[in-house]
Amino acid sequence: MDRNKISKWLKGPAKMGHKYSLSAIYFCTGCGIIEVPPVITARWDAERFGVIPVASPRQANLFLITGYVSLKTLKAIIRTYEQMPDPKYVVGFGSCPINGGMYWDSYNTIKHLDKYIPVDGWIAGCMPRPEAIFIGVTHLWTLIDKDMAKGYVKYREKYESYRKNQEQILGKLEWKPLYPIRRRK
């Protein structure tokens, strides 16, 4: 541990905690499921970065969305994202959630994930290698350090428009709004 790091710990322990302890919940649809297990198991060992998979969104602060997002999974993604405690970071993994990828003209997948939930970082590729996840994680560290990974704040501030987008594509949502919505006249 160098001196720089120690002074950072002393200045903002909470931020460092969020940075070095990323409990990941991953939403694997499609081919993303193939890339994540090697990352968390012995070959690439994500635990050395403090990234550890957890089972429930309540315990997680990193949300990995790997692969295409169909309408049905979008519902689950929103639900999971809203259940995660603040602060939370979302990383889109692979080209499908970025712009639809090879499903860009499919009737049932969405093209831009960040219309529905805020995304802090993207890892491009089809599919990205496990190393890319680590690069993504280190980039996320930098973002957290510079207070730029503020997707969850954005979600709170612009909840109305996010909710509107969600309702536009999914129809009426079963759950109550997470934040109070001020209806405009």
Binding site: F27, P57, K75, A76, R79, T80, Q83, W175
Partner: peptide, 10 residues
């Protein structure tokens, strides 16, 4: 109690 973990489902 409705806001509960159900693997992403309601």
């Amino acid at each position: 109690q409705d806001d509960n973990y159900a693997a992403g489902a309601f």
